[in-house]
Design a protein around this nucleic acid. Structure first.
Lengths: 132, 132
DNA sequence: CCCGCGCTACGAAGATCTTCGTTGATTCTA
DNA sequence: TAGAATCAACGAAGATCTTCGTAGCGCGGG
């Protein structure tokens, strides 16, 4: 008897590239996604199609077959997926400490003034013990 | 003609598990690594050996063959590897914005008072325009 | 001296990922 | 309406990852 996947698996690199297009454009056809990706990626049409078919099986995306050109949409929000990926990385490489990760991230890639203000605001909230 | 890898590739999950043992224990034999991993992982001895051999080819680790039981050590520091993994994730999933990642990380997993102070200190430095 | 144990090396199998060619069906158009 | 364009489906190939069985070597104990 086959196991039933309880949660969506971690998207691979190619799958994440597709998800980013879907998050950015909203529900899209294979052609839509392919045209965006072909610029940066150079991947063929049927490659994108196959990926989307597999992602449908994996339940990373949902497919609307009402029209001849099926319309795909990301199943999980960008935000939620980012959190999952972060959680994975924290566990796999940072021993579970998100603060360590934050320090690395900030020292690696400078953020803008405005972004830093946003982080300070969040710190303030956290120190007040407020839940998010 | 084969291309010469200019930088070490991104470690896979299994490879990262081994690297974490090496970072924690320092230079170790296959047996050492295997004993640590077999508790949590259940992986066989020759599996760990094979991984370490491949990681040697990929230059993720260095091997000292002076003794009959070779001694392996991580080639890149834990810190540097963590930065690379973070940079990858920022590019692949966060559109290059490390600030977005920080916000997610902090709101996902609360940090301690002391850790928050560390982050504030770093923010101060960044706002003064100091390089790191 | 010789056997067995610990160790490396090798190769192969199975899984997953990524790619794309081909086929056949549907829709458009001249 | 016939041919062209568009599309989903399928399968297969090649790459990488992970696993482990087996072979072969050297060392140490009996």
């Amino acid at each position: 008897m086959a196991e039933k996947r309880v949660s969506t698996p971690r998207p691979t690199d190619a799958e994440l590239a597709i998800l980013r297009v879907l998050w950015q454009r909203g529900p899209s056809t294979v052609r839509d996604v392919h045209q965006v990706l072909s610029r940066s990626h150079g991947s063929g049409y049927t490659t994108v199609l196959k990926l989307l078919q597999i992602m449908t099986e994996k339940r990373l995306v949902v497919r609307d077959e009402a029209q001849r050109a099926h319309v795909y949409a990301a199943r999980e929000s960008e935000r939620r997926t980012q959190r999952q990926l972060l959680g994975d990385l924290v566990d796999r490489a940072f021993g579970g400490s998100s603060a360590k990760l934050v320090l690395h991230a900030l020292s690696e890639r400078p953020a803008s003034e405005e972004e830093l203000r946003g982080i300070r605001a969040l710190l303030d909230q956290l120190e007040k013990g407020e839940a998010l």
